[in-house]
Design a binder for these strands. Structure first.
Lengths: 330, 330
DNA sequence: TATAATAAAGTAAGCGTTTGCAAAACTAGC
DNA sequence: GCTAGTTTTGCAAACGCTTACTTTATTATA
């Protein structure tokens, strides 16, 4: 069976018009007489013509494709963000090219370049952190980019986040009322958001409570890390802990449970992600709610504006957060 | 700043060779004198040339891009599969275009067609189920496709799965030894895999135990559905339940816990997904282990072969499953 | 009815590569 | 040094579409 693909040229011939006209009706650009439009449309339907996105991309220099960059495909945090992005991208008919940097951690730049070479119209960048190098690359390339759930040190890229510093400060203040040994468990101390926001939020709270011991503990990534860090918490006699990651928090919760340590009576646990895992935990996990889905959606919406060169008033969006007290805090 | 993009033509000119030669060194195709190769490569590096994937795609009719189709971006089951796919696709340098059908549930066909028009070299299709229509479309199009974690009724598309019927049968047999009221909780009774495999596996076990009550219950999707279906289980006095989805199982677990019903003493709960959620649950969730990551990886590996037209011995791969007894079963 | 506008349609030049075929440049054999 | 056989290169035609520019058809105006 010879199934040569049907091109715009075939349609043009059959409809007895030029390919330019067909292109116009397909894209709804330019003026076409109603009668012609109808005829062409009918023929398109009959022949089952579907425009070739690649050719279109080459010719128009627009691919209606956005790149989404994330470190890990199998992670509730990024998944919820991605969902927001995905839904909005559908609304605007953008396709998504996914790039995860999971395996290749150092060559994020290559991954990005690969995105560039695919001629994506825009990029949503998500990660635990963004290096200055990557940030510069993105900035220089001049391709519309928005960061979701990450901050870049220089604040030159559009982004959407919550106020991490304030959120951390609030929790710490609350903990400090009842406890004198409090920990902030982060996955990596050196990420921008931890270094410049969360730790500072904690430090600020510390100023108000000179008798209280505040500590930053590094746990690493994922559920097992939570399980593992528990002993350190106990050794240091921590009474209340704020983690940046739900999985880690659940690890701590379960480690406590497995050792018959009562949460929240003996240890308060609060997380800072509020993915849907929080509800599945027992006791249900209290958390700062980052509106992840919304962050993704807002980021994507902003990106569409950027791509269309529409003016964007505020390029550093801070979405409101809440503190959700469930059963893992008093 | 005028940043005209650097094309192969620019490189050719600077290197004083034809673009054909540059193309050859970039792609490593054809014969190029070593000296020339080196020179060109150096210039490519100096100029910072990066090939344009879109043009390449148009010219070669190969995009080194695969489409991955899934119903939901934020779902542990598909995420683990996707991770396997992603890792392998990296190994073979394929890019990924993601298409979720979440919003647009009826027009899966349109979503696929959009994938076609992007000229993807291959497709990995994941879903709860696949309609005959979609299946036919995929088949007719002739583009290499493999199903991961789904079976199509006609068995015409390559796929990778586990033996759902056997797995279900095994669990049911085990349950039937100790209980006389057993449920299979599915998300949708009418999907191929439930109708043709799981229910049949159960039915087969039922034949061996005429005094035991077996029941299929429809719960719907997600954690809340699990919470919700619990009362029905209790009303029917179910003593052991197998669910197809971890979230649903955790819902049941937590509902039981919230009502002080002891698992596994009063109710045994087994799931059939074994995502990483299973470990986070308390009690830890017993599960049929579908090797999701592996399934994704194998599917992708098979797809690469298909795309290269390498022979593939077995196009209906059945991966081994295990039954993992944790704390939610006796 | 002739003429200026305006709407509709067509022409053809890209977009940045790949690749079959032809030409040119070597190599080796004699 | 010439010829046949190989390597290396270059040429130019796709790939399928968009779009600036032109030409032609249609209307409205006087």
């Amino acid at each position: 069976m010879k199934k040569r693909t049907i091109t715009i040229y075939d349609v043009a011939k059959k409809a007895d018009v030029s390919m330019a006209t067909v292109s116009r009706v397909v894209n709804g650009t330019g003026k076409v007489k109603e009668a012609t439009r109808q005829k062409v449309q009918q023929i398109i339907k009959d022949m089952g013509y579907h425009p070739n996105a690649v050719a279109r991309g080459l010719a128009s220099q627009k691919t209606t494709t956005i790149g989404i960059f994330l470190p890990d495909l199998n992670n509730a945090y990024f998944n919820e963000l991605a969902q927001g992005i995905d839904d909005v991208s559908k609304l605007y008919n953008y396709n998504i090219i996914l790039m995860s940097s999971s395996i290749s951690h150092q060559n994020e730049k290559d991954v990005l370049r690969s995105l560039f070479s695919q001629q994506v119209d825009g990029i949503v960048y998500m990660s635990y952190d963004i290096s200055d190098e990557v940030c510069d690359l993105l900035y220089e390339k001049g391709i519309p980019t928005v960061l979701a759930g990450v901050v870049d040190y220089k604040r030159q890229l559009p982004s959407v986040n919550i106020d991490y510093k304030q959120a951390t400060y609030d929790i710490m203040e609350k903990f400090a009322e009842y406890h004198d040994s409090i920990a902030l468990v982060v996955q990596d101390k050196s990420t921008n958001v931890n270094r410049d926001f969360r730790c500072k939020g904690m430090a600020e709270a510390a100023k108000n409570h000179s008798t209280v011991q505040f500590e930053v503990i590094r746990a690493g990534y994922g559920y097992e890390s939570g399980l593992a860090v528990f002993d350190e918490l106990k050794a240091k006699d921590i009474q209340a802990v704020l983690t940046t990651d739900d999985s880690v928090a659940i690890g701590i919760l379960n480690a406590a449970n497995d050792r018959s340590i009562k949460v929240p009576e003996e240890l308060e646990v609060m997380s800072a992600m509020n993915t849907k895992l929080a509800l599945m935990a027992r006791p249900e996990l209290s958390s700062i709610s980052q509106p992840l889905y919304d962050m993704g959606a807002v980021a994507m919406r902003m990106l569409t504006k950027l791509m269309k060169k529409e003016p964007v008033q505020n390029q550093q969006v801070i979405l409101p957060h809440e503190i959700i007290n469930r059963k893992s805090t008093k």
